[in-house]
Design a binder for these strands. Structure first.
Length: 501
RNA sequence: GGCGGCGUAGCCAAGUGGUAAGGCAACGGACUGCAAAUCCGUCAUUCACCGGUUCGAAUCCGGUCGCCGCCUCCA
């Protein structure tokens, strides 16, 4: 079995992935704080780790991979949102967990093995904090409990910082109860109007970082194989998780730290605070989910990904091409009495060779730190070869070519199972696209079909002028026609949809 | 200031020592009544810039410039 290589933030190098136990691979990914609708940045993280999950499942077996992704359902922003709307925090978290799940489901992400919430593990959190206090790594102060960074000499190993660096760059006023400005809250004392849970130090709620340590160890293992999340979580969140966990267990918390890059807009990070975000829901109202997924996989997961409408246009067009070939491959069949000339057989053998190469390149690319862009490139190489031999593939192939059919369908299966692209039929994708696009442009499909019928009638009478007038008129509103022996089909030009963004 | 990342054709984007994948666009051709789709061909002697190492560098080293991120909540 070939190996998987992953870039490990902890060592800043590409490393061969070796799970602690191949029978039980454990991956924990930091999920969203549920106080607002998910945006494209959240979608990127979900899709990236979905691809990793799918790859791990293929390599180690579906049931050998445990993927944990949490929901942070206790947090300042959630409380603020609840107060703002005069509702319980549960109403907020319920709404946005549903929104998140709807978004990632639409994007074709598999559900994680388990999706725990902070509120489900309160007792485990207070237990863990108590263990930290017992270990001399945390202290109580005025109803709060803080982690004592000086008790963990390795602090900073993930983000490559030292305590000295950090002390000199304090940008906010530290809590006076802290012994050191680097110390961080494990437990916050209850304040009026905020939800609270009982604890040995009085009512309160957990700090941000402790929840992940606890959920990862409770639902996963004391030592995780993979811990993932966005680049912005490296410091302080993941750094603090390591400190809290290892100060108690004295074991490595996570062996491979995997971080995805940001989605950017105009070269700036897409974020709530900058207000430059596009929610997944908004985007899905104009673009097929497949388009968004393709776009998110078109660059390497650690690179910044600049979002602009042109990127969605390109992704949609690339999918047109992919789906076209997929439809052809799906229809492939063999028949005992089918025959081919020597020359045709030779050309089919060449196609088989190229398909084999694409399969290998695709697999190697994914195993090489999830190089989805290169994997897609490999698929397109076979797409071209399939198209150029399309005439040879429409009729049943001789049974001697069964292996070719198998290869092509295997490559398509890789695309579907590993990347979750081209999962549906081409016809459904084109129909979905036209529906979204006509709605976005305010076009009436019935009227388009009526015009096409009129043009077909004109063509039957060889009235080319009339025929071309109709076609040109449709084209100027963004509708492209395609004549075929089976009739005329139409498709909205993605450029026109982007133009309205 | 500390830590980290990025800079490859008109646009997007692979490629981390052996002579520039792939997608979109553009141009020429085939096919077509004309188109579209598809196919063929053209499209970076060059990888921000300057030095160095090497038989050989987009890839390694040093420096310069530009952009971005983290150091406060953030995927």
């Amino acid at each position: 079995m070939q190996e998987i290589r992953l870039y490990n933030t902890l060592h800043r190098t590409l490393e061969t992935f070796e799970p602690l136990d191949p029978e039980q691979v454990v991956m924990y990914v930091c999920g969203p704080t549920v106080y607002d609708d998910p945006h494209l940045g959240h979608a990127r993280a979900a899709v990236v780790f979905d691809v990793l999950f799918r790859l791990l499942r293929r390599v180690y077996g579906d049931h050998a991979v445990r993927y944990i992704r949490n929901y942070t359902d206790v947090d300042d922003k959630i409380i603020a949102r609840a107060n703002e709307r005069g509702v319980a925090i549960e109403a907020i978290t319920r709404q946005y967990i549903a929104a998140y799940e709807e978004a990632v489901d639409a994007l074709g992400c598999l559900r994680p093995t388990v999706s725990p919430r902070v509120t489900e593990v309160m007792e485990r959190i207070t237990d863990w904090i108590q263990q930290l206090i017992d270990a001399g790594a945390a202290y109580e102060a005025g109803g709060c409990v803080f982690f004592d960074v000086s008790a963990f000499p390795e602090y900073g190993k993930l983000s490559n910082r030292t305590a000295d660096d950090l002390v000199t760059t304090q940008r906010i006023e530290p809590d006076p109860r802290k012994r050191s400005p680097l110390d961080f809250a494990l437990w916050k004392e209850a304040r009026p109007g905020e939800p609270e849970w009982p604890s040995p130090w009085g009512p309160g709620r957990p700090g941000w970082h402790i929840e992940c340590t606890v959920m990862a160890t409770v639902y996963g293992r004391e030592t995780l194989d993979i811990h993932g999340g966005g680049l912005d979580l490296i410091f302080p969140h993941h750094e603090n998780e390591i400190a809290q966990c290892e100060a108690v267990t004295h074991h490595t918390f996570a062996r491979y730290w995997v971080h995805n890059g940001f989605v950017r807009i105009n070269a700036e990070k897409m974020s709530k605070s900058l207000g430059n975000f596009f929610t997944v829901g908004d985007l899905l109202s104009r673009w097929p989910a497949q388009t968004l997924r393709y776009f998110l996989l078109s660059a390497h997961y650690r690179s910044p990904l600049d979002f602009h409408p042109g990127g969605l246009v390109e992704s949609t067009k690339a999918l047109f091409r992919l789906y076209g070939a997929a439809a052809l491959i799906d229809r492939l069949q063999t028949a005992p009495d089918a025959e081919r000339t020597t020359k045709q057989t030779h050309r089919l053998a060449e196609l088989e060779r190229i398909a084999k190469q694409s399969i290998e390149t695709f697999d190697a690319a994914l195993r090489d730190d999830l190089n989805t862009a290169r994997a897609l490139g490999a698929v397109f190489e076979t797409v071209r070869e399939v198209n150029r031999r399309a005439a040879l593939l429409t009729d049943p192939l001789p049974t001697a070519q069964a292996e070719l059919v198998e290869r092509l369908q295997f490559l398509l299966a890789r695309l579907r199972d590993d990347l979750a692209l081209c999962t549906g039929s081409a016809a459904d994708f084109f129909a979905e696209w036209n529906q979204l696009a006509t709605a976005a442009l305010g076009l009436d499909p019935d009227e388009i079909n009526r015009q096409i019928a009129e043009r077909t009638a004109a063509r039957q009478q060889r009235d080319w002028a009339r025929s071309d007038d109709i076609r040109d008129a449709l084209a100027s509103s963004g509708v492209l026609l395609e004549d075929s022996p089976d009739g005329t089909i139409w498709r909205v030009d993605p450029e026109y949809v982007a133009g309205r963004d």
